[in-house]
Each structure stands twice: as structure tokens, then as C-alpha cells.
Design a protein around this nucleic acid. Structure first.
Lengths: 342, 342
DNA sequence: TGAGGGCTCTGCAACGATGCAGACATCATG
DNA sequence: CATGATGTCTGCATCGTTGCAGAGCCCTCA
């Protein structure tokens, strides 16, 4: 199983290990003749450098880790794709782990036996671990955080402006003349910062329109999954005075809500308009297609990776808080017209 | 940046490096008193073992690589999730790379400068690389293949029975009395083995029902994406004698086809019944929900990882060809009744 | 008393690569 | 001809860890 080492090649070519290394790396002056001879042996033995040894010597692995709650959630899958692409163009590969939103699994990363030391840096999309914990336990490895969960200046951080994004979505619905706009996805507890920011934006939009918020229209959900979106929508429809529009805190909730609306015989958007957030590809092809707020995922990934690499190189001063642009994309679920997918 | 090493701890605790190592690993007899003293220093310095050094010494990294065409394709995202989970329970972490179906990128893996040597093994879902190439170029790293692309006994291999899966799907439609069943997704060229197997199953089902296949109903697509499914469906609807059912070679094609059908004003399944393949979560919540053939993704992942680990341990005889079960899941797109999502 | 056996603990070598300093040969220059 | 510069090539030390062999030490038992 173990392949030939520099030593094996050196012995066979009758040169020093160092010279073989030089040939392999194209370093230093090596005469053409000798280079050719060594290269021949390299080819003959099909030498492959042992990257672990190289890593040890150089103190870096060329690997970063991406930790997300759930990889099969389309938003994270699409984001992971962008992170892998961004890392690749910068010479890095990406190890991906998922925590299932389990705080203990997130904290495992920080523990004594974590494999984090195998990576040059860490891009973390945390759900329940706190900044305190991150700071306290050996942050030997550079970290960049994604999303709003931790936002206290201790770590570099990349996210959209969630308040503005939610405000834009809600504003769009209110601008269409809807007057009972529900919200699905609030998380009024410690680990629900992102959701709370979106609720704040939802309230801001109402305030700007001079409208009261009906608290009964704000539906909390423990997770951002299709099923919970459908269930929340069903509860909303059961209200004495049901909503005529709904802003869902992500696209999956929105797709679940749409499903519930159709099963209940409601027309979208005539009876109820729906807006999501994330712009996952699925929303372009759903029926109806989904109006959504689109974060620039490519930009999130690039900025996160760039910032991480700066941190790895020690070029980072105080941890930047990077805000990435978003934009509203209007589709059938709020516009009513049938347009071809983008 | 660099943390304390065993040497630092040893110096501070006035013991040998080896003893510190023994304490860290719980090896060998160390007196309680000394253990406590060393442990105190370990805690004080917040020592973390350098895993790269450990890996070098032990000749393994505890990492496997998963290479898929596109991580944001739901099937692969869901599969990746299962692979990560399976690997985790066996003490491994997973590096994920994507090739975008680019043959050169797939071949990069095999090249001299590949990072493959950093991993104990490789799970590869190939699109265009051939078995020849895999065999020829330094297969120093144990490999397990997913899907049908390469299936010649050179490598361990995990997949569903694609012919049977396609036959089951088509049979379901024919059994409903449909007589013009189209197929979307054929790939009649060298790298389209999987698609061709599904076409074979489609033909088998027709044969079993004593029916001729109308070749005009077999639509090729270069990729298995929503947009191409929609386009193929549009072409089918433009036929003089359009189909009354369609079997799509994956769920994304099917969801695109559904979208096209709805935009064309066709009723599903009354006018056209639709069946997909993959059972991605999205199909449970689409409108209509999607009848599909579900491969057991968890089983694929577990068998792939187990086989890979056997191979890593050198316990593998001749490369096994593992067939994982699939089952038909009937939903609205072929059944007509509205059922709650699973 | 001294040989033998546990129990602790230690030092050396090694994993496979690279950084560094220098050896050696060749050649140009004063 | 001596000197130094240049161009090639080499050996040693090192990255941080673990495997192995053995060194002390204490105790037991003949």
C-alpha cells in the first residue's frame, strides 16, 4: 500500500534525497541531465509525495473545514458548493462536517480531541454555540463565522443584513396592498438571533407603513424546514382572521407554506401571497415559483474564504464584520404573473 | 499561532516527552501522582495534539474524500449527508470535492499532484473518468465507486439496480393504463452508462407489457437538471401525438417537466402522469408531490463507507459489486389523490 | 543477601518531507 | 596562479508525534 518515498527514489537514482526533492519541487539548480535521470525514476516508481509529511514540515495542510448544521438543506448545499469553489481557486480543499444544530456537536469542534488542528482554518455556521465558548476554548485555529448567531466582534463574521432583508420582503408585501402579513419562523429564545433579526425587520416594515403588527400572525418554528412551514401555515389559516400574505424566514418554510395553502384550496398569490428568503434553486421551479430575498451566496463564500485566509496568514487586524448584499426577486408567489424561470 | 507541543509540556512538568504522550493517550502505566501533575500542565497550557504529526507517524489521517459532480444537486447533497454521518460513526471525517462533471477535474484526482494521498480512501461518483484511467494512474488510495458509470469489476462499487428501478417506474405508469409513456434523460454516448441502463429498464417494462416503444418519446438530455427537464417536456408536448405519462431519469428532470406541464395548462396526473427517480425531499412538497423511485441512500452511504474501510484495512478480496435496494413511492404526480407528505 | 519480577519512566529512532549550510567542481578574473 | 564567484549537489537537523527497548527502582522470596 505505502508508495515509494524520496528515499526509495534517491537510492535507485543514486542521488541524494535532497536532490530528488529538488526535482519534485522544481527547486534549486539541478542539471538537465540529472533532472532527467531522476525524473525517469520518479516516473518508473510512480512516486507521489507524502502530503502528510510535507504538511508537518510546512505547518499547514491546505485544508479548511466548513461546518454547517445540515448539508442537505438546500441553502447550505448551495453555500457549500460556493465555498468549495472559492477555496479551490485559492488552493485549498474543504472538509465538511454537519452538526444537525446540536450544540454538543458544535462544541466538539473546540474540545481537546477535535480534529480542528488538522485544518488551517474553520468556516463555521453556528446554531447554538456561543461566542464565549468559542473564545474560551482553544481558538488555536482561525475561524470565520457565517450568519448572525454570534455577532459581538470577537470573530470575523460574514452575513447579509438580516433586518434589511426581512424589511424588504415585508415591505414588498405591504406595498402590494396586503394588510394582514404573517411571519413564519420566529425563534424568540437565546439561539434564535437570526430569526429575531428577521422579526425586527418585519416589524420595521410595518412601522414604516404606519401599520400595527398583529402578534398572532407571528408564528415561531423550531427549525426552518418544509414540514414546519406547512404546519405553521395551517395554524394561520385556522385563525378567525387569516393572513393575506406571509413572509417566511427561509425558502423551505415558504415551500411548506405553499404546499399547505394549495391543499387548503387557497390561491397563490390571489388569496395569500408568499415570500421566502435564501433563493434556493428549487424556488425557481416550484409551482408557483417563489418570490424570495436572495443573499449573494457566492459573495458570502468568497468573502468568508478570503477573510479566513487573511487570518491564517496573520494579516487580519480586528475581526471584520462583513455585510454581503441581498436583493428581492419577485416571482409568481407574490406577483401573480407566470414567468419562465430565470 | 502554533500551540504548545509535547516538548513544551514535558519541559514545564519536568518529565520526559514520552511520559506526556503516555498521559495524553492514556497509555502505559503512569503513577497517579505524576499523571495528575502532567495533566495539570496540559490543562494550563491548553495542549492540543498535533494531528498532522500523529498522522504521519501512524500512516493514516482518519479522513476520507467524497467526490461528487455537484454538491448542490439535492441527490448528492442528501447522499453527502449520509456519507458524512456514516463516516462519523466509524471515526472518520469527510472531505468533499465536486467535479462539475468535468473529466479533467476527475482525472486531477489521479494525477501526481493530487491531494488524494492525504486521505485514507476515496468515495468517487464519477461521470466521465474511465475504469482504465482509474486503474492506470496511481491507485495508491483505496477507492469505492458510486453509481453505474464504471462497472467492470476493477473497483468496489455501490449502486442500485438501475435497470430494475427504471423498469419499476415505467411499469407503474403502464400499469395505470398509460400507453404513451415518454422517457426523459437518455444519454446515448460513452459517459452515459447510467442513463442507458435506465433506458434499458424502460424498454424492458414495455416489452413485458407487450408494447412497442415509440422512439420519438425518448428524450436525451445532457444533464439531469430542472431546466433540461422542462425543455424536454416542452418538446414532447409539441409532438403530434404527445405522451400521457413520462418517466424522468431523476427527480430534478421530473420537477422541471412538471413545471413545463403546468405552464402548458396540462393537468397532472390526469393528462400526463410523472415519475422521477432519486426521492429527493423536494419531491414530497412539490405540487403535485412527485412519484419516484427511492434508492436507499443511507444504505448506499453505509455500504460505501464500510467497503472503503475494509479496503483501507486490507480486508477486501475481489472488489464487491454491491446492489442496494430501491422502492417505488407513489405520490400525487401519478396517483391523483392528495396525500399529506410522508 | 541477592536474583528476579513488576512497575514507572525515559531516550532514541523513525514517519517522509523540507530548510539550511556547506562541500565540491568548474570557471572567470586580477 | 591564487582567489573568488558560480553552479550543482549533499548531509544534517527538524517538524511533533509514537514504537520500542531498556533503565532504574522497589519489592518479594528463596
Amino acid at each position: 500500500m505505502a508508495g515509494p518515498t524520496l528515499r526509495d527514489v534517491a537510492k535507485r537514482a543514486n542521488v541524494s534525497i535532497r536532490t530528488v526533492s529538488n526535482v519534485v519541487n522544481g527547486y534549486a539548480p539541478v542539471s538537465d541531465e540529472l533532472r532527467a535521470r531522476v525524473q525517469a525514476v520518479l516516473d518508473e516508481l510512480d512516486y507521489r509525495p507524502n502530503l502528510i509529511a510535507r504538511n508537518l514540515k510546512q505547518g499547514r495542510t491546505g485544508m479548511i473545514a466548513l461546518v454547517v448544521p445540515e448539508l442537505d438543506v438546500p441553502y447550505f448545499a448551495e453555500l457549500a458548493r460556493e465555498v468549495i469553489t472559492a477555496a479551490r481557486t485559492r488552493g485549498y480543499v474543504v472538509m465538511i462536517d454537519q452538526t444537525d444544530g446540536d450544540g454538543d456537536r458544535e462544541r466538539e469542534l473546540l474540545g481537546r480531541d477535535s480534529r480542528a488542528t488538522m485544518f488551517d482554518g474553520l468556516v463555521l455556521s453556528p446554531l447554538s454555540v456561543t461566542a464565549e465558548e468559542l473564545r474560551g476554548r482553544g481558538n488555536r485555529v482561525p475561524i470565520v463565522l457565517l450568519g448572525e448567531h454570534i455577532f459581538n466582534g470577537s470573530f470575523p463574521h460574514v452575513a447579509i443584513d438580516n433586518v434589511a432583508a426581512a424589511r424588504d420582503a415585508t415591505d414588498h408585501l405591504l406595498g402590494l396592498g396586503r394588510r394582514r402579513v404573517a411571519a413564519i419562523g420566529d425563534q424568540p429564545y437565546a439561539t434564535g438571533e437570526t430569526a429575531q433579526l428577521r422579526t425586527a425587520g418585519y416589524r420595521q416594515a410595518h412601522a414604516r407603513h404606519g401599520l400595527e403588527v398583529d402578534e398572532a400572525l407571528i408564528m415561531p418554528t423550531t427549525h426552518f424546514h418544509r414540514r414546519l412551514g406547512a404546519e405553521a401555515m395551517e395554524r394561520l389559516l385556522a385563525l378567525p382572521d387569516p393572513p393575506d400574505a406571509v413572509f417566511c424566514y427561509n425558502d423551505l418554510l415558504a415551500l411548506g407554506a405553499i404546499r399547505a395553502l394549495i391543499r387548503a384550496g387557497r390561491r397563490i398569490p390571489e388569496d395569500v401571497a408568499v415570500v421566502g428568503l435564501d433563493d434556493i434553486e428549487e424556488g425557481q421551479y416550484s409551482t408557483p415559483s417563489l418570490t424570495t430575498v436572495a443573499p449573494d451566496k457566492g459573495e458570502i463564500a468568497r468573502r468568508a474564504v478570503d477573510t479566513l485566509l487573511e487570518s491564517i496568514r496573520g494579516e487580519l487586524g480586528s475581526p471584520p464584520e462583513i455585510v454581503v448584499p441581498h436583493r428581492l426577486i419577485v416571482r409568481e408567489s407574490s406577483a401573480g404573473e407566470v414567468r419562465p424561470p430565470d
